[in-house]
Amino acid sequence: MSSVLRPRRRKGAERPVGTPLPLWLPAGGALALILLPVLGLFARVDPARLPALLTSPAALSALRLSLRTAVLATGVSVLLGGPLAVVLARSRIPGKRLLRGAVLLPLVLPPVVGGLALLYLLGRTGPVGAVLEQWFGLTVPYTTTAVVLAQTFVAMPFLVVSLEGALRAAGTEHERMAATLGAGPWLTFRRVTLPMVLPALVSGLVLTFARALGEFGATITFAGSLRGTTRTLPLAVYTEAQADVDAAVAMSLLLVAIALLVIVVARPRAVG
């Protein structure tokens, strides 16, 4: 699919341009900054204790909760953020530039601020939370739903941005063509638009899932921290770091492993 869109490199057609020497040193520094801390994490591991730490009830419950909530958050992001990307890319509504900027807000905002904002809106004393509690007897904070909401808040922009960018880059030519051939808007969307942006959608999904999985600040401020209900892996790492560093390191390795898996599985097809 993506090979159609990508300009094909003709062999021997051009001479490779050399990389300027002064770039090598800072480039090496950048790589070191990314890789050395992760390697340092591995160096801290006590191999004898690792299996027990990875299968401890605290680690397993956090892992299960993390995977479940991150999948849900990714699903919500697609259901809500996908259509938003289409609207932003295709419709002609006033103030679209502003809306586009607003979508970036959770990316730029510190997650703790997002968590506080969610708490003050959906908490028991918040304008929406008070209504939910009084009319429906629903409390959002301290629930797994709160975790999913916090993750969606911080992660959905990744999906919207990558999908919207792809939609705009693809243009509307093919869609107009389909329309002249008699296809209705829905058929055009399914058979033309969607396949065209599928690679961007997949990469957006992967980024959204990864960001949701790593969410910490918004979750701990909005949802709190309780094993099995709201304590996802990143929160468990933080809690364990207070007392048992080895356990915290083991859980961190779990997160690193999942991150690597995500990159290996998704990157060549979606982003690269």
């Binding site: 993506s2 990316l107 960018g165 792809a166 880059a169």
Partner: peptide
């Protein structure tokens, strides 16, 4: 695709 990538660049600079 190239245009999409170029759009991501200012964001990276901002971050």
């Amino acid at each position: 695709m190239t245009r999409a990538r170029a759009r991501g660049f200012p964001l990276a600079v901002l971050l």
